[in-house]
């Protein structure tokens, strides 16, 4: 991405050297703060179990080993299934959210109709409810619909919780697409749907990908609440529940637990890495003269 390095260049040119150093130092501190739990977790996963309970506690592993990454599969034989479940639930949730949110966000961004502010405000208000408050009514709803102990019990409420913020995020993005493009397409005889598919969607792609990533991460991290409440079948349980299996009767197998956590996040990381490659900025360059 040529433009990106040019931007960086421009940024460096605009600041004095010590300002650049300060900015990078600040970013590094922030990054370290964010990453330290992961670093610690990763180091724990490398330590032999005995070292974990030694006193005084050592930060760096001695004779670090990846053995936990092998033994974890024996300790919890069904672990792969948990990962698969998480992955499946998040993927389907994300697909559902995108299918509903992309057209909705477009409508909210482009069409002005009476009461739209109310509907949008409603979405915001609803999303402020803590999920915990709604668990009991949701449980009754799921039971009535006969969805308890199915994947849907985790997918549907999960998707529903993720929709409001996704709509707001994507609407904001789509509002930045110039309306002249709609008018030009209309002048050229294109129908609303044709314009949406051929003009708006391709331009909105970076926004849609961001929403997909945010939604996927959201689905991945929130699903265990629904799993614990609406599901009692082990074969449908997602990753976070699977991790509890490493809490043994007498002790917590910390190194394997951490190893399993990293294995569990891996598919999500792969998806995000895959999606972000399509995140190119500047897609509207040259559309209209600002």
């Amino acid at each position: 991405m040529a433009f990106k390095s040019r931007d960086t260049r421009a940024m460096i040119d605009r600041y004095r050297w010590w300002e650049v150093v300060a900015i990078y130092a600040g970013m590094f501190c922030f990054l370290f703060f964010l990453l330290s739990p992961f670093i610690e977790g990763f180091l724990v996963s490398l330590k032999p179990l005995a070292q974990l309970f030694s006193s005084p506690y050592r930060f760096w592993p001695e004779n670090g080993t990846f053995a936990a990454y092998v033994s974890m599969w024996e300790t919890v034989p069904g672990f792969a299934r948990y990962v698969f479940n998480s992955f499946l639930i998040s993927t389907i949730s994300t697909c559902i959210v995108l299918l509903l949110v992309v057209p909705a966000a477009y409508a909210f961004a482009r069409f002005d109709y009476r009461g739209m502010g109310l509907v949008l405000g409603g979405f915001l208000a609803v999303s402020m409810f803590s999920g915990a408050v709604l668990l009991i009514p949701l449980f009754r709803l799921m039971r009535t619909m006969g969805l308890l102990n199915t994947y849907f019990a985790m997918i549907i409420p999960g998707a529903a919780f993720l929709i409001p913020s996704a709509i707001w995020l994507l609407r904001t993005y789509m509002m930045r697409i110039p309306t002249e493009l709609n008018e030009a397409a209309y002048m050229d005889g294109a129908s609303q749907f044709y314009t949406f598919r051929r003009v708006i969607l391709p331009i909105a792609r970076p926004g849609i990908i961001v929403v997909a990533i945010v939604t996927f991460i959201g689905a991945y991290s929130q699903q265990f609440i629904f799993a614990l409440t609406f599901n009692s079948k082990t074969e449908y349980m997602p990753l976070p529940i699977g991790l509890y299996a490493y809490f043994g009767k007498q002790e917590v197998i910390w190194n394997e637990l951490m190893a399993a956590s990293f294995v569990g996040i891996a598919p999500a990381l792969v998806i995000i890495f895959f999606l972000q490659r399509y995140l190119v900025g500047g897609l509207t360059a040259g559309a209209v003269k600002q």
Binding site: A184, M187, L283, G286, A287, K289
Partner: peptide, 18 residues
């Protein structure tokens, strides 16, 4: 517009950027 046999050129060009 199409049925009017009219085409319009916008001040801001309104080109499809992609």
């Amino acid at each position: 517009p199409v049925k009017r046999g009219i085409a319009m050129v916008f001040q801001s060009y309104a080109l499809y950027p992609h």
